[in-house]
Design a binder for these strands. Structure first.
Lengths: 248, 248
DNA sequence: CCGCCTCTGTTGGATACCGCACAGAGCCGA
DNA sequence: TCGGCTCTGTGCGGTATCCAACAGAGGCGG
């Protein structure tokens, strides 16, 4: 089973772009304390209001940040993969946030205690600058997601979501049912089926019982609204891979 | 005219909660460099992508952070008043953001050069901790706004918007037409008229040609969705007024 | 091989909001 | 005082999405 296989894949901390961008000096201090943890789909990392005393650097999994409403629906506000870190509230000083973090795509992450992260952050070195810029990228993603949910069709949102997910996974088929995607986009399952079916007819994706495969990335980008590109461009700008991030 | 009057009101930097929360030591370094600037409605502080080389601490004005779409609509993702600061991209390290900042309610702010703010931020003292926590509060507001736009009726959104605005202004009538409110919520003007009319019939607000007055705050909160309270509670938690903010 | 469960496809009616068009009402300046 | 502009009120048809119900299709275990 595909899921099981990916659970046993060997990963290294440096598959995470943030960790990879840090200088050796920081690696020496942090790597010994990073522990690899399996991230099965559905694993709840934080609930809204929980103290976030650990942070996670994904390598080959995807984590969704969800906000709940009183009506018991929840909406994915941003996603975090190997480009980022889950648990920004730790160094932002709030300790907790009003979102929940849940694993959306099975894989692995490296876990670090909040205390160690804060200590390193407070050295005001490479990690500090990097995490701040990452936080800004996250904010951009959140805002653009908000705009997208409001203005664009389910089909466009689906394209955006697929592209964001593909960027964060080493490779194809996404193991997601229409039902799960609908939870993420917070639309009806039927809406996702309809949009998927349309994309399939256009020859852009194919899917079968919980596996979605992109057939043509370029066409996916064409059919998508601008939201994907806005987020991608801004993230690339903010997190341009540098061995030694430029200080403010 | 109400607008003109408020333009000549005398303000002090300490009307801004962030500035007020800083210890004397920081005041001594920063206050000499803060200059009071009038903030007339419609003033554009940054455009998307602009280098934010100045930050603004509002005292009695409200600034909206707007994200535009390609279809030339724009949506208010968060609002900043005397509880915050406009220009977080400066210390987050991105220098620019993908939003625009525009004055929504006439008043004043204190302006500081980005360089001086960064210098103070990089001292890693009170301002540093305060601004990080403020940023997190801003993120919470953005996320909740996103959720609200998606799930709640125009009437509920209007209540939320009114409450957030009232919190940030010394006092009553908000000088806003339905048209302007509709731009903020990114709905039709008629939708705002309809919702306003309903709130009026319920005796909760009254309005007349560009002036909106809340008659009963408690009732406004009842009619609102949970979004206002979530944001308010979390902001209060993160920014609990302390003479010397607690370090991480 | 069969039954069951999950996943996908489809339909019909309801609804919130949109776009447009226009009418009345208050205010300001000529 | 009167014309014109801004602001608010209202009605009509269109549409994307929602809600509910159900039908077929594929896979897995007994």
């Amino acid at each position: 089973m595909q899921t099981e296989a990916s659970m046993t894949t060997v990963t290294t901390p440096l598959q995470n772009h943030l960790l990879a961008a840090l200088p050796d000096e920081v690696h020496e201090r942090l790597l010994p304390y990073l522990s690899s943890v399996p991230m099965p789909r559905g694993k709840l990392l934080y609930e809204a209001g929980d103290a976030e005393n650990r942070v996670y650097f994904p390598t080959d999994c995807i984590v969704s940040l969800l906000y709940e409403t009183e009506e018991d629906t929840s909406e994915e506000i941003s996603i975090v993969g190997n480009e980022g870190v889950v648990g920004v509230a730790v160094f932002m000083g709030g300790e907790s946030a009003t979102s929940q973090a849940i694993v959306q795509s099975t894989g692995h992450a490296y876990r670090l205690s909040g205390k160690l992260l804060k200590d390193e952050f407070n050295r005001h070195g490479a990690l500090f600058y990097l995490l701040l810029r990452y936080s800004q990228a996250l904010v951009t993603q959140m805002a653009q997601t908000a705009v997208c949910n409001r203005h664009h069709t389910i089909e466009q949102q689906l394209c955006r979501w697929l592209l964001l997910s593909l960027d964060r996974l080493a490779s194809a088929p996404l193991a997601m049912t229409h039902e799960l995607v609908s939870n993420m986009l917070d639309v009806r399952r039927e809406g996702v089926t309809e949009a998927s079916s349309k994309l399939h007819k256009l020859g852009v994706i194919e899917y079968n019982r919980g596996l979605i495969t992109a057939l043509s990335r370029p066409r996916l980008e064409e059919l998508c609204c601008e939201c994907y590109t806005v987020v991608k461009t801004e993230s690339d700008r903010l997190l341009a891979y540098t061995e030694h991030p430029i200080p403010i």
